[in-house]
Simulated assay, not measured.
Amino acid sequence: MAAVIYRNDPAYDEAYLAGASVAFGVFDGVHEGHRFIIGEAANTAREEDERSAVITFDIDPDEMFAADKLKKLMTNEARIAKLAELDVDAVVVLPFSREFAAQAPADFLEVCFGGGVPRHIHIGSDFRFGNRAAGNVEDLRAWGAERGMEVHGHELVAERGVPVTSTRIRHLLGEGRSREAAELLGRPYGLSGTVRAGRGEGRDFGFATANLEVPGDMLAIGEGVYACYAVVDGARYKAAVNVGVPATFADEAKENIEVHILDFNENIYGQPIEVEFIEWLRPMRSFDSTEELIATVMGNIAWVRENL
């Protein structure tokens, strides 16, 4: 059963968090490390027969303070929905704004918890909060000690000796290392988009594509050709996917994701689809002839058919 999602509306009573065990963070990607911290909050709640909750923000703060270089792993709505699938009673979504972020650390915490201080709070050891991220775990611990809140600062989960972080996953994806990223996410990296009309030559060449124009801040995956799954109306199909504007058509192309769905011939213009990235196949490249392009793409499609 999915957790209840509370937003900043009259239905949410701040006293809900009083005595609860909570995990606090942005949790972009809801990756292995995030799920560990949230799982620890749920364990503490069970031990004390109290409710459990995840506290997060309605946006990623980096959308406001580092928008020029941000590559999000999930949309905000997908992130909140994924958090609600975890073993907690509630997801509390706090509104994030420049005014909220500019508060001194103690004031920041009063706004978050003033109406209901949790009994336990679970965070990563790198947790920061308040104006210019001045507050740290020790500041939170001092604030909590005065209010009966125990702070559990967890060392980051490591894979192959390196901490699992959203930044690490973005780096892997940017290099096309989708399989390694999936190990840290606990699932394939995916993105969604609405199918739009493309250039049309793919159908002429024998491999029609569903074309997506994905905003730059949602495109963490690096350029190249990938073996993927495409989810259309809940059904999952094998797909060969091109990420980036093809060099051969750089002067006229706008779409940056082209999805050839195997054994599929339906009109899905205007419909949303999700793409799950499984394996990097090759880099983007230009071709000396149309025949070379067709032969290469057909080879990619054959690989997907035989290996996924």
Rank of each mutant, 00 (worst) to 15 (best):
I5P: 09
N8F: 07
N8D: 12
P10M: 10
A11Q: 13
E14N: 10
E14F: 02
Y16V: 00
Y16L: 00
L17T: 04
A18K: 10
G19T: 00
D28Q: 08
H31Q: 11
I38Y: 04
I38T: 06
A42L: 10
T44A: 15
T44D: 11
A45R: 02
A45W: 06
R51P: 01
V54T: 07
D58Y: 10
D60T: 03
P61H: 09
M64Q: 12
F65C: 11
A66Y: 05
K72R: 15
N76R: 08
E77F: 00
R79K: 13
A81N: 08
L83F: 07
E85C: 01
L86Q: 04
D87Q: 04
V88H: 07
D89Q: 03
D89H: 06
V91A: 03
V93M: 04
L94H: 15
P95L: 07
R98G: 02
A106Y: 00
D107A: 10
E110K: 05
E110I: 04
G114W: 12
G115F: 03
G116T: 04
P118G: 02
H120M: 05
H120S: 02
H122P: 07
H122K: 03
H122E: 07
H122A: 09
I123K: 09
G124W: 00
R132Y: 11
A134P: 11
G135A: 08
N136V: 07
E138A: 12
D139T: 12
L140N: 10
R141W: 04
W143A: 09
G144Y: 05
A145E: 15
A145M: 06
E146R: 05
E146C: 06
R147A: 05
G148I: 03
E150T: 13
V151N: 02
E155M: 06
V157R: 04
V164I: 15
T167W: 08
R168N: 09
R170E: 03
R170G: 05
H171Q: 12
L173G: 02
G174M: 06
E175T: 08
R177N: 10
R179N: 10
E180C: 01
A181H: 07
A182L: 07
E183N: 00
P188N: 00
Y189Q: 02
T194K: 12
T194V: 15
R196T: 13
G200H: 04
R203W: 05
R203V: 00
R203A: 09
D204F: 02
F205M: 14
T209V: 01
T209K: 06
D217Q: 14
A220H: 05
I221N: 03
G224A: 10
V225M: 10
V231T: 14
V232R: 07
A235S: 13
K238S: 15
A239L: 11
A239Y: 08
A240F: 00
V241G: 06
N242Q: 11
P246D: 05
A247C: 08
F249M: 11
A250H: 11
D251K: 15
E252I: 11
E252N: 02
K254V: 11
K254D: 14
V259P: 04
V259F: 09
N265E: 15
E266M: 11
P272Q: 12
P272I: 09
E274S: 09
V275I: 14
E276R: 05
I278W: 13
E279D: 10
S286Y: 07
S286G: 13
E292H: 07
I294V: 15
I294F: 06
T296Y: 07
T296D: 14
T296R: 08
T296H: 09
G299R: 14
N300Q: 11
W303I: 13
V304I: 05
V304C: 14
